[in-house]
Amino acid sequence: MRRELSFLESRPSWLRGSFVALFVLTTVYGISLWALPPSAAERPGRREAEPNPKPAPAAESTGLFSALSELDPEAKAEVLRAFVERSAEDLLLLERAAAEGKAGDLRFLAHRLRGSSLALGATALAEACLAVETSSDDDAPTRLTALRDALEAVVGQVEAETRARPSA
């Protein structure tokens, strides 16, 4: 320290002042980083510093739920709950209609599920529903399998959305 000071003493006064100011500022900044709790450092606008950022729900990037974007969180949650309940029920009814060879029921139920899908903005699921609506007796089972897969994917995204935003 004494050596550092003697080094400064041989410098012009304005330079000595600058070194001292720099030393003080660096020390104060270092102490503040050490002393402040992490929550105070993680202010909005510093998200890049988050060690484990939460991945954005996949649904947001696919446009799913975009049709619900202007609903308040409680309304959106009610719609998503209704979708999960009704779609599970409709899938059971669809499988029963297919097993019993009731083509009219199959088309009606697929149409209703297509309406729910479109209301959510789930276009891939809506297309799978349309494929069942327009299927012949022979290809209905295959298309119903595709519909079930598409529905499972959407329900998975609904559950991820609900977990990510419990009030959504």
Binding site: D72, G115, L118, A119, L120
Partner: peptide, 17 residues
């Protein structure tokens, strides 16, 4: 009027909003 509860709900919430 809609037999699909989800569509009905979405439209109703939009109107209430």
């Amino acid at each position: 009027v809609d037999d699909d509860a989800v569509s009905r709900l979405v439209l109703s919430h939009m109107l209430r909003g």
